[in-house]
Computed example of a mutant assay.
Amino acid sequence: MTGRRADARRNYALLLDVAKEAIAEHGPDASLEQMARTAGVGSATLRRHFPTRQALLEAVFREEVETLCARARDLTAHPDTRAALLEWLHAVTAAATTIRGLAVALARERALNADTAGAPCCSVQLTEAGDPLVRRAAGALTPGVTTDDLLTLVTGIALAAEHHPDPAAEAERLLGLAITGVSPQ
């Protein structure tokens, strides 16, 4: 982005801000054309910066995903490997439940298994960040459980809880049930 003209950098930042608001309000299927209009640019400008909806979603959620990845790295030093993994899964579940559109974006990425625009996908980044925690906690997990399995469960839980009167509480309850299945005490 540093090699872009100043107006292109401004358009990118403006489109990203508009997209964050639109996705928070309308979900991940918010109108791309409306986002471009709100930003005061043409849809071609939006497509130049974000060639696909998935590329836009990745940019919108990049900061949160990076925070979750950093949390996973911090937790690898935790002496209780099971507790460290569970703390990270709770953080991922909370983010996927409370940040509108994140769970759908992760589910789509996983279904497409696509790496758009050459940058690591959100789900790929989360899998790579969680792998060390899962490896360290392997003795406390049901044999064969992978980071990908756990992220699929978390994404499903967030999607299942989305329309519940208290999505965060329902997601925590469902995560507790899932944890009992994949890592019984």
Rank of each mutant, 00 (worst) to 15 (best):
A95P: 03
P132F: 08
S123L: 07
L75H: 06
E87K: 06
V145T: 13
N113A: 13
A114I: 02
A119E: 14
R100I: 08
C69Y: 05
A77W: 10
V134K: 01
A103W: 01
V104H: 12
E109H: 01
A94P: 02
A70C: 08
L106K: 00
I99E: 06
V92M: 08
T98D: 13
S123P: 03
A107S: 14
C69L: 07
C121K: 02
A91H: 07
D74Y: 07
R62N: 09
H78K: 09
H78I: 05
E128A: 14
H90V: 12
C122A: 15
T98E: 13
E109A: 02
C121T: 11
A137W: 04
H78N: 11
L106G: 00
L89D: 02
A111E: 15
V65W: 00
G130M: 07
A119S: 11
T98G: 12
T98V: 10
A117Q: 05
G144N: 06
T146Y: 04
L141P: 01
R110E: 07
D149T: 08
N113Y: 06
D115C: 10
L133H: 05
T116K: 08
D115H: 11
D148L: 10
I99L: 10
E66H: 14
A137T: 11
T98C: 12
A105P: 02
E64D: 13
L141G: 01
R73V: 11
A137Q: 06
P79N: 08
D115E: 14
A95K: 02
W88H: 13
N113S: 12
D74P: 00
A111P: 05
A96W: 00
G101E: 02
C69S: 15
D115N: 12
A72E: 03
V134H: 01
R71F: 07
A72V: 05
D148G: 12
E128V: 12
A77F: 10
R135S: 11
R82D: 14
P143E: 06
L133I: 08
R108V: 04
T81P: 03
P120M: 06
R108C: 05
V145E: 03
R110Y: 08
Q125L: 13
A138C: 09
T81C: 10
R73C: 09
L102P: 00
A105H: 04
A70V: 09
W88K: 05
E109I: 01
E128G: 14
W88I: 00
A72R: 02
T98H: 08
A129G: 10
D80G: 06
G139A: 13
P120W: 04
T146W: 02
E66W: 12
R108P: 00
T97S: 06
A114G: 03
T98P: 03
L102M: 11
P143N: 05
L86M: 11
L126V: 00
A114E: 06
C121Q: 09
R62A: 08
A94G: 09
L106W: 03
Q125A: 14
I99M: 09
E128Q: 15
R135A: 15
L133G: 01
